[in-house]
């Protein structure tokens, strides 16, 4: 299962150093204590992790299907309805709960939104690095620990480091949403060359499977959730897809 996922992710993966696959011990598996992984090891780590489809530990169960993926019938969504769906998708994507980690080339997560006051980069000089998980310096998972399963109320404490049943990480560079316009995000999200080579259905599956994304709608700790709901967002993605992924600039 993991091999297959990895192969899949390799073909989808964004331009990277291409490396031979190696089964590496990574955070969260029981097993050998850390040795010196070196920079090669971390690049491998990065490939294995940030594709978003691979959760690092066999002990982390794949999420139960949390949403219904039921695209509308072909031709049933007009251009105008598609643009309306897009407007809602943009509200979600540009919301702090999503955009704070969709920082493009910057490897600094952002702290923005009503609970932060002034918008600023993540404190304490944390840097996600090229690995997007802080492997080069301080792993995101040091503070944003990984839940072994999706238990409730893990993020009730205000101002603590949110955690999910998946490794905390920045989004890939191409998925640059922070500070971007609706036109820019739309162009990125509909283009297989910049969206991880995905169809809209595959994006819906990505939203279903990757628990870190669910956090946006149930962040806990007094943080403002992303608008609408996970299911509504998935519905909008599917509808937008059926409408031919129209963008405001078309």
């Amino acid at each position: 299962m993991i091999n297959k996922l990895f192969e899949v992710s390799m073909t989808r993966s964004l331009p990277l150093v291409s490396l031979p696959f190696r089964a590496l011990p990574i955070p969260l598996t029981s097993g050998r204590s850390s040795g010196s992984l070196g920079s090669l090891g971390f690049l491998i780590l990065l490939v294995a992790v940030f594709s978003g489809t691979l959760t690092l530990s066999t002990s982390v169960t794949a999420a139960e299907d949390k949403v219904v993926i039921n695209p509308p019938a072909e031709g049933s969504v007009s251009q105008q309805e598609g643009l309306q769906a897009w407007a809602r998708i943009f509200e979600v994507a540009s919301h702090p709960r999503c955009a704070n980690c969709h920082t493009g080339e910057s490897d600094r997560p952002m702290w923005s939104g009503p609970s932060y006051g002034k918008t600023r980069v993540h404190g304490m000089n944390v840097q996600a690095g090229t690995s997007r998980i802080g492997a080069e310096t301080l792993l995101c998972g040091t503070c944003h620990t990984t839940k072994s399963e999706d238990w409730d109320n893990a993020n009730a404490t205000p101002h603590a480091a949110p955690r999910v049943a998946m490794n905390w990480a920045l989004a890939p560079v191409e998925a640059h949403w922070f500070g971007q316009t609706s036109e820019q995000i739309c162009a990125q999200l509909r283009n297989p060359e910049t969206n991880g080579d995905r169809t809209m259905r595959e994006i819906a599956e990505h939203l279903n499977h990757d628990l870190i994304l669910h956090w946006a709608w149930a962040p806990g700790g007094g943080r403002e959730p992303a608008p609408y709901s996970l299911q509504e967002h998935v519905n909008d993605i599917l509808a937008w897809g059926v409408a031919g992924t129209p963008c405001p600039q078309d």
Binding site: S30, R32, L139, A161
Partner: peptide
């Protein structure tokens, strides 16, 4: 340290 990795 948890399996050698730093954790809060």
């Amino acid at each position: 340290h948890v399996d050698g990795f730093v954790v809060r």
